[in-house]
Amino acid sequence: MAPGDALPALPAFLALLGALLPVSEAQVHLALGDRRLDSRSTITYHGDSLSAKTVLEGKAEEEGSQQLTCAVMLGNQSLETRRSVTIYSFPAPNLTLSEPEVSEGTEVMVECQARAEAVVTLSGVPAGPPGPRVQFLLNASAEDNGRSFSCSAALEVAGQVLQKNRTRELRVLYGPWLDERDCPGNWTWKEGSQQTLRCQARGNPSPHLNCSREKDGALLPIGNLSCVTRNLSGTYVCRAISSRGELIREVSVMVLYSDHQNIVAIVVVTILATLGAVGSAAYVYNRQRKIKKYKLQEAQKATTMKLNTQATPP
């Protein structure tokens, strides 16, 4: 019987007697079988009616169907009514891990157990023959860290199926992880763009991560939104360290940029080189022309002198 339920015939009985005597003078007695429950009963009066509540704490030997009796006496009149109630014991199932915290690669026994009449199921385990106990052996891996196990027990009582659950979490200790998914090995960005450098090491306990450039030890600003500059370029060594070990990974950062000053300088140098080449060619050409002219003049002089010599008589 649920607390607060009205008992048949009592309202009419109290209404009839309430016209003659105050209902507050009524005496109420509750009993479960032969056991009196008066010490745990609470009587509440509502005008010409009353309600009685009690806390039932069944004993092991009382499990099963029992008679709950409510007797009311007012003046020289009395009335008694009975209800059938079911006493049962159904604690939450026991869910145990052979070790709640283990190192990676350790075998862990997971067990779910309830009272003999119950049927239990354990999350993540293939269904087997129905029964009050389920076990399975797990070889703990890093992926099992934080894994939650749920044990559910079902018990049928008086035609109703009752359920209770219990959960436990497994902690797996493992060394640092730092792969392509956690920390890309190559980053290429445009100069001036806003970027967040994401590199995160996994592990239990959580590892400390540090990324420094090989050539000068400059730190990579991991996790901060910042403006990309060409000074960020380089190869960095990322170290993830915890009490479970150390892992090293190289990360390359390339910054794409266009240098207008260098382009202008290259153009200027090219023009100067071109002008220098043209000047040198002109100088050589003029020199060769002068040499040819001088040689021609000398040849003409020699010819003239020879002719004059031949023309003079002996």
Rank of each mutant, 00 (worst) to 15 (best):
Q163A: 08
C183V: 11
C151D: 06
P207I: 06
R147L: 02
A153W: 07
V237D: 11
R213D: 02
Y236K: 05
G223F: 06
L209R: 03
G159F: 06
H208N: 14
C227Y: 06
N186C: 02
L197N: 01
L170Y: 01
D179P: 03
A153N: 09
N165K: 14
G203W: 08
C199P: 08
G234L: 13
V172C: 10
S150E: 09
T229D: 13
S193Y: 10
G234S: 13
P207S: 09
K164Q: 13
Q160D: 07
G223S: 07
D144V: 07
S212L: 12
S150D: 08
Q163T: 14
R213H: 04
W189R: 14
H208W: 12
S152L: 14
F149Q: 00
G159I: 01
I222Y: 01
L173G: 04
R181C: 00
T196N: 08
K215W: 11
C183T: 10
L209C: 04
L173W: 09
L225W: 03
A154K: 15
Q200T: 12
W177C: 08
L178G: 04
E169T: 15
E214H: 07
L155R: 01
S152M: 12
Q163I: 11
E180A: 02
V172R: 03
G175R: 00
S152W: 06
C199S: 12
K164R: 15
S226Q: 13
C151N: 04
C227P: 03
Q200R: 09
P221Y: 05
V161G: 01
S212G: 01
L155W: 01
Q200D: 07
G234P: 10
R198E: 10
P176T: 09
R181L: 06
R168V: 15
C183F: 11
E169P: 00
Q200G: 02
L219K: 12
C151L: 02
G192E: 07
C151Q: 03
Q194Y: 11
C211P: 09
D179K: 02
E214S: 12
